[in-house]
Write a protein that binds this DNA or RNA. Structure first.
Length: 786
DNA sequence: ATAGGGTTAG
């Protein structure tokens, strides 16, 4: 709209116009169109030359949120005989519409044109500097205020105090207060707000004490300050002593509780507030919803939602976001989704909490779709998605997303790294794990308890006991889980004595063991066949620590007894345990029967297990091997027939080995690897050397009725042997050859690995389904008990 | 002569 267009509008009323008619019409002007009608009338009659009348029209235009600022500027530019009031109006319009720099430009023009500034000019300009957080320009203004003498105006002074306080320059703010002869309650509140903002309790208390009269705003600010600095008692005391509490006072105290994680107290106070008939606004509801989210009180959240609708404040954006967060945190993803789909101006937290909400209820794919469609992903979004993948066992995706996050230029925080390290643990990706540990050190991230525990677990489950211990001794705080990772880790790495020592040390430090601790302790005993010691811990668990053993503890004991050859005792324990034994319990006994050659019991248990779980390949294989080891080929063939009928396929042995950051996979009998020729040559070399060392292949476990030579060949194609041969070629000493196997290592491979470690002077570490085997100079850390 | 300015809670 411009003046030419304005002229085309029909005059709204008769040609005669005066101030009283204008004053009567202006308040009714709601739209640019109506304003233009008045304007055209004024131009038509020449009334626009009346400076006072023109200033009234400009003010009306500037104050209307529906009129564009450029339109006001056109009016401004056409006003003849402008004055300070008109310039002030224009500058204020710019500040109000968040263009403080344009207000400052106008001020410079004002000085050039010698338009007189007045005491109203400076508060506007100081406010402009405050919005820009430009203390430099503010100081410049302060000088000019000083020269013009407007510093005696309390309004001018208060905006200056506020400006310094908002910029954090409490020295200059305080100087103004100390020197001023004209202080009103706003002056005091402004300087107080500055101290509250920087958390300076001493100076805030001093100012509050100096105030000639305490007003509610000042007391409210003090409550906020006490809350932010954790002084709940002082906040409550002040609240109780206040003669007049307003909505903000209640809201401030509720927010104190909320920020100090006293969520119940926050909710109780909110109920009290409502019972006292105090008005509720969107600000206090946000605090209360956060409390509901933390307490997972979705019902209370819903009641508050009804209240919000009843009082008609549900359309506040902040409230919508808070409700989305509350619902998704409480697991009511349906309610969250409804708001999310209908919401506008959703903030980052809403997106992030929707992603977490979907992940929490297991909808990984939906979460990923939302994540992909998200406009701005922050560290929290990435972290939520990465840890969601890890929690749902999508470990490769976890690592892939982590790489993507870094390509996106974002730095992971401690929370993200915990998930990534845990994925490394599951994939035995030691190189990446070591890289992340180095990243943590390089970037000065704090190894907190959780991160430390995760690292210990990772190193232990990758067979790096030394590194795990280094982390353990380097962290400040230890939880039960930290000790558990250590005890369990030492046990699976064959350091049983050290594991049990650490259990004593843990108790000596006053840490109370839990049921997971005893999985580690009993596991340690199992790995060394310490039957008596195992029983002692099992009993102390019940009597001393009042922990009811679960089915896994019983399974562990059955395994301990069975492996030690006490098959009868093991079976008795199964029959007397207080809960129904599961497949794993019987499976442990079957393994023991195989180890100790008890074919009668083995057949009985094996058949029971196959009946129990006809699709389990391991039990069939064990039973068939039991028959084969005693030359009962009919039995073995029958089991193989059952497997065929049930469609059970034997899981092929698979070994993984990481070389130069790449994971290589070998299956039993595999010929697919590009280096197969070199690997076969190496296997021949190994075979020759081993024969010289006196190694004889152990063909007992091969159930196929094939001749001896073929048996030996197939034995020599076991996946772990292929991996060892590859490791000898691809990994240069003294780096140990680290291999992860999906099944348990077989007798022959175990014997061969021992020989190889001596003949080639190489350390070999094999992680099988159950534990680690560290082969060094012809012996294994498991002391051949496994 | 007349009009217009600042502060607090998440």
């Amino acid at each position: 709209m411009n003046f030419i267009k304005a002229l085309n509008h029909k005059p709204a009323f008769k040609p005669s116009i005066n101030l009283s008619i204008l004053e009567a019409h202006l308040p009714k002007c709601q739209s640019p169109k109506q304003l233009n009608q008045v304007l055209s009338q004024m131009i038509f009659t020449g009334f626009i030359r009346d400076t006072f009348a023109a200033s009234r029209v400009l003010k009306c235009s500037a104050d209307s949120p529906f009129v564009h600022i450029d339109h006001s500027l056109q009016i401004f530019n056409h006003i003849e005989n402008s004055n300070g009031f008109i310039w002030n109006t224009m500058m204020r319009a710019y500040v109000q519409r968040n263009s403080p720099e344009k207000a400052i430009c106008l001020y410079k023009l004002m000085l050039d044109r010698n338009v007189g500034c007045d005491n109203y000019t400076y508060p506007i300009l100081v406010q402009a500097c405050t919005i820009r957080l430009s203390e430099f320009e503010g100081k410049e203004l302060h000088n000019q205020v000083f020269k013009t003498g407007f510093d005696s105006d309390v309004y001018v002074q208060n905006t200056l105090i506020n400006m310094y306080a908002v910029c954090g320059n409490m020295g200059d703010a305080r100087h103004l207060v100390d020197e001023s002869p004209v202080l009103d309650s706003v002056s005091w509140n402004s300087i107080l707000a500055g101290y509250v903002q920087i958390g300076d309790v001493d100076n805030a208390k001093y100012i509050y004490g100096m105030m000639p009269e305490r007003n509610t705003i000042a007391s409210n600010s003090m409550i906020v300050l006490f809350g932010r600095t954790g002084r709940l008692i002082e906040a409550l005391q002040l609240f109780n002593e206040m003669p007049e509490k307003d909505m903000v006072s209640w809201s401030a105290l509720i927010s104190c509780y909320e920020q100090n994680e006293m969520y119940e107290e926050a909710l109780v106070l909110f109920m009290k507030m409502k019972a006292n008939g105090i008005m509720v606004d969107e600000v206090v509801v946000v605090s209360v919803l956060s409390a509901c989210a933390h307490l997972s009180l979705v019902k209370t959240g819903k009641i508050i939602h009804c209240l919000v609708v009843k009082i008609g404040i549900e359309s506040y954006v902040n409230l919508q976001n808070a409700f989305i967060h509350m619902y998704s945190t409480c697991g009511d993803i349906i309610a969250a989704q409804k708001l999310f789909n209908g919401g506008c101006h959703l903030d980052q937290i809403s997106w992030n909490s929707m992603i977490s909400g979907y992940l929490k209820c297991g909808s990984v794919e939906i979460a990923k779709k939302l994540f992909d469609s998200m406009p701005n992903k922050d560290v929290v979004s990435w972290s939520a998605m990465i840890s969601g993948y890890a929690q749902h066992d999508h470990f490769s995706e976890t690592l892939a997303l982590f790489q993507e996050m870094q390509l996106d230029g974002l730095s992971p925080d401690e929370t993200t790294l915990v998930s990534v390290i845990s994925a490394c643990t599951h994939l035995a990706a030691l190189d990446l794990g070591i890289w992340i540990h180095a990243y943590i050190k390089k970037n000065g991230l704090k190894v907190n308890v959780i991160l430390g525990t995760t690292l210990i677990d990772m190193y232990m489950k990758c067979g790096c006991v030394e590194n795990a211990l280094e982390v353990f001794y380097g962290i400040e705080e230890m939880w039960v889980s930290t000790w558990n990772a250590l005890i369990l880790g030492l046990a699976i790495n064959g350091l049983v004595d050290k594991s049990l020592d650490m259990f004593s040390e843990m108790k000596r430090c006053g840490v109370v063991p839990n049921e997971i601790t005893f999985m580690g302790v009993l596991g340690a005993c199992r790995h060394m066949g310490l039957v008596d010691e195992g029983y002692r811990h099992f009993n102390s668990m019940i009597q001393e620590h009042k922990i009811e053993p679960n089915i896994k503890h019983y399974g562990c004991m059955v395994d301990l007894l069975g492996r030690a050859g006490m098959l009868k005792e093991a079976e008795e324990l199964i029959e007397t345990m207080p809960m129904a034994p599961d497949v794993a319990t019987w499976g442990a006994l079957l393994g023991a029967c195989k180890k100790h050659g008890d074919n009668k019991m083995g057949e009985r248990v094996g058949r029971k297990l196959i009946e129990f779980q006809p699709d389990h390949d391991g039990f069939h294989v064990l039973l068939s091997n039991i028959y084969a080891s005693k030359g009962n080929w009919d039995g073995a063939l029958e089991v193989r027939g059952m497997m065929m009928r049930h469609g059970v396929v034997k899981t092929p042995g698979c070994s993984m080995i990481e070389a130069k950051g790449v994971v290589h996979e070998f299956l039993a009998g595999d010929k697919a690897h590009p280096w197969m020729k070199e690997i076969e040559d190496k296997l021949d070399e190994i075979a020759k050397k081993l024969k010289m060392e006196g190694y004889a292949p152990d063909t007992n476990e091969i159930s196929l009725d094939i001749d001896q030579e073929e048996k030996e060949t197939s034995l020599f194609r076991h996946s772990e042997k292929l991996a060892i041969a590859f490791g000898l070629i691809a990994i240069s000493p003294p780096t140990p050859i680290r291999i992860m196997k999906n099944l348990r290592i077989c007798n022959d491979c175990h014997a061969a690995a021992k020989f190889i470690s001596r003949a080639f002077n190489r350390e070999i570490v094999i992680r099988d389904r159950h534990r680690f085997h560290h082969f060094k100079q012809g012996s294994c850390s498991c002391t051949d008990y496994w």
